[in-house]
Nucleic acid binder design. Sequence first.
RNA 1: GCCCCCAUCGUCUAGUGGCCUAGGACACCACCCUUUCAAGGUGGCGGCACGGGUUCGAAUCCCGUUGGGGGUGCCA
Length: 468
Amino acid sequence: MSSGPRFRFAPSPTGFFHVGGARTALYNWALAKRLGGVFVLRIEDTDEARNKPEWTDGIIDALAWLGIHSDDPTFEGPYFQSEYAEAHLAAARRLFDAGAAYYCDLSSEQIQERAKAAGIGGYDGYSRDRGLGPGPGRVLRFRVPEGSTTISDLVRGEVVFDHSTIEDFVLLRSNGTPMFLLANVVDDMEMDISLVVRAEEHLPNTPKQQLLWQALGHQPPAWAHVPLLVNEQRKKLSKRRDKVAVEQYRAEGFLADAMVNYLMTLGWSPPGDREIVPWSMIEREFRLEDVNHSPAFFDVKKLTAFNGEYIRMMSIDDFIAACQPFLHSSDVPWPPDRFDASKFAAMASVVQSRASTLAEVPAVIDFIFLADPVVDEQAWAQTIAAPGAREVLADVTEAYRALPEWNVAALKDTLEMIGERHGLKKGKAQAPIRVAITGRTVGPPLFEALEVLGRDEVIRRLTMVASP
RNA sequence: GCCCCCAUCGUCUAGUGGCCUAGGACACCACCCUUUCAAGGUGGCGGCACGGGUUCGAAUCCCGUUGGGGGUGCCA
């Protein structure tokens, strides 16, 4: 058993894995690894019916994708908050018995009325000394003492909260079920959590939690509140407005290494002037004390750039392997039976430098596997209208028919020669051939494609387009 | 309303009182390379929110202003 710090990671139960949560998980993981601690996964929802197993599986799967494996000795869990229901209730009972909590029978309407009349914000502590016991329609509230609470935060330093600004918050609902705040603290105590790393949005509630830890007779954990991830409007990333599901980025062909690396550069940076760094270095260098205090914009453009770098760093075999799911997915543009693995392998290296996500791969070489690539009307009209274009097309078709050797060098030399004969530079000369073969004016290197396609198919496409 | 947090190029960041004429990356622009498009190379554009202090000296420390964000539920 490890004696190092115990971290807890508790993704919010929204049905998917949030990128902000992913970063927090990575922080916890890097720290647990370096400090010889434990990463505890907890599924937080006091309502058992909402602890959907498939969601938990999805989280574990997404964590594994990021390199946080549940079979690693550093990993513990998942634990389900709902399973600790008795401990939550027992804690509430202890608080009440000790006088640290009291019952209140005011409805929210009544509380609002009183607050309005008194000109204050929330609950005014009306039932503090009424000596009420438990009963229907009564909530259990925490008796916030006089004074102030100081939160020692590993990233922000000391933050002081005056108790006068904290109202007597609810511990148990009138139906007897525990509130999240209580459950959360009790779970942390049950699981011996010693370092809580979470997003900044939780900072204002931290004094309440610390008060609870103390009232329950425990030493509070160390806290670390990391900056929020925001959108271009500088608002907290949300499911509704923003693309925040890790699973979605994965499906769109982002590499786990790129995602992890990028996420880690938000609010923190590796030593030196390098941003693209291996996880081993991150694990060795990451410090909570070095984390920024301000929110960071999750920039998909920069993520994409990172991803391109990671794609180009792959060996050709790894690249081909990584492409497989995207080559055989159901929304591939070509008929599945026309796909040819060896043709793709022959094109792989030119594709690799052109793709910034794996999902872009099929579109780069779709013309190879399409029976008849759709020729863009406008592109064709413009290309063939250029001086000499029609002649080059005709001559090249003839020459390619008779070409003794079908390879990149021969294909290239022949076209260049014919282009020169018609006074065209290489760029102009290859244009009509490119459109005839690929259907577009832009694409991967032409001669490689011609070689892979083979003489018969090339001649077929060349003549097809020439005879309207 | 009240409480809390934050403030360096458009964005992510380096910077912890002199090494700062503020460094890097993404994006953008130009050029080079080049069969198109990429990739790669070179260069460019662009920032310490504002006002007061403290100090011989401030992006760095203090105060205020402004701006942004978060929290404030019988949600999690």
